[in-house]
């Protein structure tokens, strides 16, 4: 199953609109496409000590002690994503086209902007990949994979997001927002997904409900600190 999903990736790359080979490498493209000098080991592509050109690529894996189909179903309903993605205000599905969604992403200073995406590949209980539509101001793509973990460990969930900030106010804002610390954002979001699915709630150390909001603000404060560091 693992092999199969890898083999399927060149097809997705072939669908590519503006996406060059660089993020494809980051996504761990199969051998026919790889270059010997950049794929020399079994580590996920996004852990490589190299840049992906104009694309920023972030990736992270977690193991969640829940069945693959349950996790897949939860993610497949994109309107669930804001429950654990911190900067995502809401995702609105397009009534006219299945798999097409508008993501409303929160930006600093109380602004929100929209990113249009289309599901470009889906393998039941295994993989969901989405990409921004040509009309979208932001060029981005993402992939989430679901694999059985060994024994009773549940499911290994991998999230990879590549994005290419382009011109325009929204593009610059997204760049600013994500570059604040994209690794941190992906890591936090995926950990929240794990918490929500494993425990039914997202942990907080707040003592009272008013502090709870403050804690969430403190989290974006931490992001800024990390950037400074």
């Amino acid at each position: 199953m693992h092999r199969q999903s890898r083999r399927s990736w060149p097809k997705l790359a072939a669908l590519g609109i503006g996406l060059v080979a660089i993020p494809a490498v980051a996504f761990g493209v199969a051998s026919s496409r790889r270059r010997a000098d950049i794929r020399s080991d079994n580590a996920p592509g996004f852990t490589a000590r190299r840049s992906f050109g104009s694309f920023d690529v972030v990736g992270r894996s977690v193991t969640i002690r829940k069945p693959r189909d349950e996790l897949f179903r939860f993610w497949r309903d994109f309107s669930n994503l804001p429950e654990f993605m911190e900067n995502l205000d809401k995702v609105v599905p397009d009534d006219t086209e299945s798999g097409r969604n508008t993501w409303f992403i929160r930006a600093p200073a109380g602004k929100t902007f929209a990113v249009e995406t289309r599901v470009v590949r889906e393998i039941d209980n295994e993989l969901i990949a989405w990409r921004s539509t040509p009309e979208s101001e932001i060029e981005t793509e993402g992939r989430v994979t679901f694999e059985d973990a060994p024994g009773e460990r549940g499911t290994r969930v991998g999230l990879i997001i590549a994005y290419k900030p382009v011109g325009g106010v929204a593009g610059k804002m997204l760049a600013k927002l994500l570059r604040r610390s994209p690794e941190l954002q992906a890591r936090h979001d995926l950990k929240r997904f794990k918490m929500l699915l494993e425990t039914g709630e997202i942990s907080t150390s707040a003592r009272c409900r008013t502090d709870h909001g403050a804690t969430q603000q403190a989290s974006s404060h931490t992001d800024r600190n990390e950037e400074q560091a």
Binding site: E152, R153, H188, K194, E198, T199, I202, S203, A218
Partner: peptide, 20 residues
Amino acid sequence: GCFHCKISQFSACENSNPVE
């Protein structure tokens, strides 16, 4: 509910320390 709790390594719980 996490891997570590299920193998009785409770102090290594993966979910009790808030994400941030």
